[in-house]
Design a protein around this nucleic acid. Structure first.
Lengths: 250, 250
DNA sequence: ATTTCCCTGATTGTTGACAATACCCATGAC
DNA sequence: GTCATGGGTATTGTCAACAATCAGGGAAAT
């Protein structure tokens, strides 16, 4: 699979060069092929992708707007490097927006959409039992769950903000901190409760459950970070492998 | 005042052409000089601003990312036209993000920042009493209030999303529907209560008050819209002057 | 030895021209 | 009269070359 199949919108095989290279770069960044913090040089990338600098610069402008790269005039661009502070900020954004999405989903989702949501949950669990090491699908499956809820909100602005912006940052973070899905069983339970609330049309409950779900994930990340700092203090010269292994799925 | 003085970030006199024309276009769209729905042609704008199409296209790509224009490949771009549905979606986004901002502001704002907030409120009220017809400053003053709270959240991601994206859409809506600030006295009261909650560090209350504040504004818009539809039905051939006059300030 | 200055190389910003695509309107067939 | 079809024109997409700016290193002065 070359393209992500994630963005929901049909790729339409990208009618324009700038569009295509934008998607390719977005994917490359999120997958870690372009490492976080690495410098991006226009002639280099232009040659790599076999295009001119014109469309490339337009693609970079879009990446900049999506917060995936950072530019400084006359100096250059680098792949964004999420600090822990920014990661926690991201969780606050998700708490606000996804809880709203859950409320709207409880209000607007059709029975077919709710069924699709349950199907994803089931597939997600089977995948998790089947091959726990195959974290890639789990990660995507997890985001697919959240993604379906956001779509269920029937709020286009919310959809683009979350799916086109924030979720790519989430994936970038998971790549950057090599975060494989953690605390799966608890997340599964929470997912089920959220779906039930949505299915029963209980807006207030759906919002509240999603809010706590995101908060719990945020807290786990914060605690793991504090722990990694403690380890660093105990082993002052030790190689710091930040937040490796497992971080919570949401 | 050429530049908006609103975006908070120091303009730095825009080191690059693309940056400058982006800000100019952003301002022109929000102020209604480029009418909503009007087509944008690249050679035309390039000549208008005296630049080449290269930087112009980069600026347009940024405007597209900020949802101020809409592009279709090989066809062209037009200034976005906010439908009532999208406007209500915008209010949902604001409810989610600004209530979060208010909570974070109650947690993080310094006493100096709270004082600046009170100063803006006072100036806002004096302006409102002084010259009620001078709606421009009132509009900006109102947004400045919300803007300061968002800054007080000390969450950069929230700041850019609200101040760089959503608030420009709010201003565009106000221009598009020629919405002069309405229900001022009630909004004033609500603003004061929000500030008091923030000053006392009551996160829960600040969030809740801001949420209701946005919801009230949303509801007023929705009611006025329904009323305008009724008028249209009573006067079937009548010229429909959508939502003219007064819409709520927030 | 350290600091300052300048110079060189490379990268970014900008431009104008060329190619491809889509809209518009006129022409013709039914 | 209405609809399909074709060419002309304007606009968008892309490219390669030119100008402006910045980073790094070396030489000279203190």
């Amino acid at each position: 699979m070359t393209s992500t199949t994630f963005s929901g919108e049909i790729p339409l095989e990208a009618r324009t060069l700038a569009e295509r290279v934008f998607q390719q770069l977005q994917d490359a960044i999120v997958r870690g092929e372009l490492p976080a913090g690495s410098k991006i040089t226009e002639p280099g990338l232009a040659q790599t992708y076999g295009i001119s600098r014109g469309p490339l610069r337009e693609a970079m402008r879009r990446l900049e707007a999506h917060r995936l790269i950072e530019r400084e005039p006359h100096v250059g661009a680098r792949v964004v490097k999420l600090s822990m502070r920014e990661l926690l900020e991201l969780f606050d954004m998700r708490e606000a927006l996804e809880s709203m999405a859950a409320r709207l989903a409880a209000r607007h989702m059709t029975v077919e959409e709710v069924q699709a949501l349950r199907d994803v949950l089931i597939a997600h669990e089977e995948q998790g039992d089947l091959d726990q090491a195959e974290a890639y699908y789990q990660r995507e499956g997890d985001l697919d769950f959240h993604y379906l809820i956001v779509r269920g909100s029937h709020n286009r602005m919310l959809m683009t903000t979350l799916c086109d912006d924030l979720y790519y940052l989430v994936r970038l973070y998971r790549t950057q901190y090599s975060a494989r899905g953690g605390r799966p069983q608890r997340a599964f339970i929470e997912h089920h409760r959220i779906v039930d609330a949505i299915a029963s049309g209980d807006e207030e409950l759906a919002e509240q459950l999603m809010r706590r779900h995101v908060i719990a994930a945020r807290q786990t990340v914060a605690e793991r970070y504090a722990m990694s700092l403690d380890e660093d203090r105990e082993l002052p010269k030790g190689s710091r492998k930040a937040l490796s292994g497992r971080t919570p799925s949401t």
